[in-house]
């Protein structure tokens, strides 16, 4: 089984000695209050911030490998996308194959999966925030990287596309990927395989949602009183759309 091991990862002023190991085939929620370090952690794991410590994939350190090789192992989606130029949706998604020699493999399939076929010739700078988020998700998925770091991928999506995205994340996990996605809605983490909680740049807890998201932790970290009634709100995709 493949695994991602993070060993004493620190970024000055942002993250402090974070260590954990996660196995492949898991969809993992990353939660924490605003400013806790969720985005910084994802950026550091993706090699976009200078850090001390180590990140290993199957025992091999990701620190010193060239960008193009790292891109084949780990993919990252930013919290917000700013598109200045009018690249078409298709050409932005195609960029996901850059590390594979721009072979354009599976472009139509991923455009279909994220409901982007009808938009494929539209300039990305004319899209809504939700549509842009789906473009970024499609670009990340097409990389076929076994580790996916998604920063708030669901924030701009409507309920249907949120569920579609979680379903795609689940499919990727079944194929052996690790998907770590930051969320600001804690209830969304309840249906995931694991939850990582960060607070003040430190790892607060890691484990299954039921183990980790206790009333005590929610009160201590998020300063909220848990109400289990809400957890009964179970959203599912309809069988026929």
């Amino acid at each position: 089984m493949n695994s991602l091991k993070v060993d004493l990862l620190s970024v000055p002023g942002r993250l402090s000695e974070i260590s954990f190991t996660v196995d492949s085939g898991k969809v993992i929620g990353l939660v924490g209050p605003n400013g806790a370090g969720k985005s910084s952690l994802l950026q550091a794991l993706a090699g976009l911030l200078v850090y001390s410590g180590n990140v290993y994939w199957n025992g091999t350190s990701l620190d010193k490998i060239p960008a193009i090789e790292r891109a084949r192992i780990a993919s990252w989606i930013p919290q917000e996308a700013h598109f200045e130029f009018g690249f078409t949706v298709r050409s932005v998604v195609e960029q996901g194959r850059f590390a594979h020699g721009d072979d354009q493999l599976g472009i139509n399939e991923v455009l279909t999966a994220f409901d982007l076929i009808a938009l494929s010739d539209r300039p990305v700078n004319h899209l809504s925030a939700g549509e842009r988020a789906r473009v970024l998700l499609a670009r990340a998925c097409i990389t076929e990287a076994p580790i996916q770091f998604w920063d708030e991928p669901l924030a701009a999506l409507d309920p249907r596309h949120r569920l579609e995205t979680l379903r795609i994340a689940r499919k990727l996990a079944l194929k052996g990927s690790i998907i770590i996605l930051s969320l600001h809605d804690i209830s969304q983490a309840l249906g995931l395989d694991q939850v990582i909680v960060v607070n003040n740049g430190k790892l607060e807890a890691i484990g299954s949602p039921n183990e980790v998201l206790t009333d005590e932790l929610l009160l201590r970290v998020f300063k909220v009183q848990a109400s289990r009634n809400l957890s009964n709100l179970n959203l599912e995709l309809p069988t026929k759309l």
Binding site: G47, A67, R72, W76, P78, A81, Q95, F98
Partner: peptide, 21 residues
């Protein structure tokens, strides 16, 4: 030119996709 396509959509995005930024 291809790397510039990716760079023009963000340096972090370009690096995460494999560009030696």
């Amino acid at each position: 030119s291809r790397s510039m396509d990716l760079m023009s959509l963000g340096w972090n995005e370009a690096q995460s996709l494999g560009v030696d930024v």
